[in-house]
Amino acid sequence: MSEQSTGNPTRWVTDTGPEHSQWYVDRFRQLAAEGADLAGEARLVDALVPPGSRILDAGCGTGRVGAALAARGHTVVGVDADPVLVEAARTDHPGPHWLVGDLAELDLAAAGEAAPFDAAVLAGNVMTFVAPGTEVAVLRRVAAHLRPDGVLAVGFGTDRGYPLATFDTHVTAAGLHREHRFATWDLRPWHDDADFAVSLLRRPA
């Protein structure tokens, strides 16, 4: 869930302590053991693409979203800058291709994943954890890995210091088009005082 810029530390690094990554791993393992619903984002993304699509889980964290998409028959590649989280994804969810990498400089062809993706997802507040000033680069590099007309689903809390108006400006600067906005991953209607925003973006055909 943290995306590390080679030039600037991410907010995941600067705004949390050294034990935060392992705490995060343990938290989601506990939630899974308790039977919590951890696949809401995956259900939405699954509905956006044909069966057997290629999906990029950008800022994959512990792999819960990508794993749920793989279980639905999609080919999944997950990328995160935090090696602790990626190792947890590899341990808990074998199958998808989990990689340690910087979203702001994403080049999956170099990792043997040259084929374009039908969709990408940035769940778990990824955009609020990237290094300050890299937001456009992150969106641009993720978009570059989509096929023409590919879709990108982005969700984050509206109270986390990243104004939606700024995000929308970044979306345009990255060459993407916003098609829809919802207040939750289960598509509840957007309203201006919602505390969460799910934006569906499209790479132009």
Rank of each mutant, 00 (worst) to 15 (best):
A143C: 09
R27S: 04
H74Q: 06
R64F: 08
G112L: 00
A47R: 10
T172H: 12
F117M: 06
A123G: 13
L99A: 02
L38F: 05
A110H: 08
A58K: 01
D159R: 13
D195Y: 08
A71I: 07
G7H: 07
T10V: 00
V76W: 00
L152Y: 06
P148F: 01
A111E: 15
T128G: 12
H74T: 08
P116S: 04
H145N: 01
C60Y: 03
G73S: 05
P83T: 06
L48Q: 13
D92S: 14
A120W: 11
R178Y: 03
V13P: 02
A144Y: 04
R140G: 03
V151C: 11
A123Q: 10
R43M: 03
G35K: 14
F156T: 04
A165M: 00
D149Q: 13
D193W: 04
R203Q: 11
L200K: 07
L31D: 11
A68I: 12
S2K: 04
L48H: 05
G161Q: 08
R202N: 03
G175F: 07
M1K: 09
L99G: 09
P204C: 06
Q4P: 00
E135H: 15
N125T: 10
T169M: 06
V198T: 15
G17P: 04
R140S: 14
R140K: 14
T128N: 02
R54I: 07
G52E: 13
S21E: 10
H145Q: 13
A88N: 08
R64E: 12
T172C: 01
P50M: 05
D149R: 12
P148S: 13
A120Y: 12
T91I: 03
R140F: 07
A67Q: 01
W98Q: 01
R160H: 10
D37A: 04
A33C: 00
L176W: 14
L44S: 05
G66W: 04
V13N: 10
V121S: 08
D102T: 02
W185E: 11
A137Q: 10
E41K: 04
A197G: 07
S21D: 13
D193I: 04
F182C: 05
F117I: 09
D192P: 07
V13D: 10
A114W: 11
F156S: 05
V130F: 05
G124N: 14
V25K: 11
T158I: 08
L200E: 05
A104G: 15
R141A: 14
V126G: 04
Y24C: 09
G175A: 11
G161N: 07
V100W: 07
L69C: 04
A111S: 12
C60I: 11
L85W: 01
A111H: 15
Q30L: 04
S199A: 15
G157A: 13
L122D: 11
V84K: 03
P51A: 10
A39G: 13
L69Q: 09
L122H: 01
A68S: 13
D82S: 15
V77N: 06
D82E: 15
T166A: 14
D193S: 14
L31R: 15
L103R: 00
F182Y: 15
R27H: 13
R29F: 09
V65F: 00
V49K: 08
H180G: 00
A174H: 10
D118I: 10
D186M: 03
A42L: 05
L85T: 12
